[in-house]
Design a protein around this nucleic acid. Structure first.
Lengths: 149, 149
DNA sequence: ATGATACTCCGGTTTTTCACTGGGGTTTAG
DNA sequence: CTAAACCCCAGTGAAAAACCGGAGTATCAT
């Protein structure tokens, strides 16, 4: 039962960035097709996501042949929350539609409680970086290896 | 920027229960129309929500003329999370569509982080009860009164 | 130079979800 | 017995989400 809904968009973006993070030390770019194929993401869709990630300053792109994408910052300097914000928040320039007339005291107190819960979740997402995810994955693969011995 | 999205359904249900909570001591039932009018909720829609809340054991209903709804438990025994689960989770009987084939290690570690964030949010929602919300609202109205003196 | 490659921009389509509505029942007070 | 209220189930319209396509532009290899 999820109440925190990980949208397709965000999941794809995070997976792509995770893959870029894994090759960060290589100093080499990855192409859309590679990432898409490796993570089973529709490539033309991923293209859009990487474009917004670029506009938001999370990745760098290199055009032309032998082009591709790379992280704009180090993996430990990019939190999951950074990514979510970049993806979900871009065209979310529409200000809160609060007619304030129908924001009854009931709604107000309810909304407050809701935001408390949200804040707690965001705190976790802010403190977790792409590096953390890479580490955990490596650790898990290690565990799997041990299992086979 | 919300990532924790409070759906209309849940908001309506919580508002309705909050209103029922406010009249809990009266030992009297409230009718759909009353609640709907008071909270600006489409009544035929609220009807469905109250029906599922009844099936989930959160409210009692009394049929026939002079009928209506009342809380099945005391307001301090109903957490916000209880309500969310009842509303969002009812027809969510569909088991996780996990072909497990395309649950790559990347997705796995990502999902884990996501659930950590979700757990943090749920903890807040679990420890907050309808009673808490009633209290806060009363407190806030008190504050408003002081302001006018 | 030039062709192939791969990103870029912009728009369209399809699928799914959401909020809401309607119609015909059943129960119960008076 | 009748009117008021809950009950069940099914449909609909709009909006968002996910995805696809085409024409353009930069860049590298040769």
């Amino acid at each position: 039962m999820d109440i925190l809904e990980l949208s397709c968009k965000s999941e794809y973006a995070l997976l792509a960035l995770l893959e870029l993070a894994q090759h960060y030390s290589d100093g080499q770019v990855l192409q859309i097709k590679e990432i898409a194929a490796h993570q089973s993401i529709p490539d033309r869709y991923l293209e859009q996501l990487l474009a917004t990630l670029r506009r938001q300053g999370l990745v760098r792109s290199q055009r032309g042949a032998k082009g591709g994408y790379s992280l704009a910052r180090a993996p430990w300097q990019i939190s999951l929350w950074d990514v979510i914000q970049a993806i979900e928040g871009e065209d979310l320039t529409r200000s809160r539609d609060l007619p304030s007339a129908d924001l009854t005291p009931e709604r107000e107190v309810l909304l407050k409680a809701w935001q408390d819960a949200q804040t707690a979740a965001v705190a976790i997402l802010q403190k977790t970086t792409l590096q953390d995810l890479c580490d955990r994955q490596a650790q898990q693969q290690q565990a799997r290896l041990m299992y086979y011995i």
